[in-house]
Amino acid sequence: MNKLLAVFVSAGVVALLGVFLLTGPARDQLFSGRSELGDAFSRRDVRGPAPDQVGPGSRGLESAPANTVTAIVLDYRGFDTLGEVTVLFAAVAGAGLVLFARRRRGQAVSARRPSLILTAAAPWVFLFLFVVGFAIALHGHLTPGGGFPGGALLAAGLVLLLSATGREPSARRLHLLEGLAGFSFVAVGVAGLVWKGSFLAHFGDSGVLGDFWSAPVTMLLYLIIALKVSAELANAVRTLAHVEDPTTKEAP
């Protein structure tokens, strides 16, 4: 009975949303195919006129990354990304606070002996994840990806290696890495304030669009984000590894 009601309610809401979003004025607004702001981002002429032709080899554009999404995330809206990283930090810190209001010490609960397959494969998979993670993070200004997926891959490699060796990452080192990365992000922002007159403004020679060594500040920020995300995720896994299983504790 309850499930039937749920089916009807969710189907009704979806039908209402579908009618509202896919017909009438809302559809004309959402799917008009026009976007003044988005096109200005694509042409790189938000603050002033761009050259008549933009393409690989262009110099001196107002935002250097070839990837427009990266240009928006780290250049035009870099301050917003600082807030995003802060939210991620707050969420992981909140999870640690909720689970361990009192200080706990000791071994991870699920510290079973690693299997042969895990111990044999872990170094190679770690190497692969390490290289691919850094490559994705460092190519964030040219290709899809960037610091967030790169950092997730680094964290996966770290957790894999540590679970294969049976040790756990040092909380102090992870906190140090995370704090240093967060500090560096703000330091890059302050450097922009000092040299260019606004927080997180990109300083230095932006290089040739499409080259690997272009947009150096974007590259630096994505590297910082990758390190910060990997430290945060490894810390989250470490926190969860210390949680005893509450559902089996009270079993007879």
Partner: peptide, 15 residues
């Protein structure tokens, strides 16, 4: 939306 070829900024955006 990744610039891999030259385009004119005066016409409609290709992205």
């Amino acid at each position: 939306p990744i610039i891999t070829g030259a385009f004119s900024t005066r016409g409609p955006s290709p992205f």
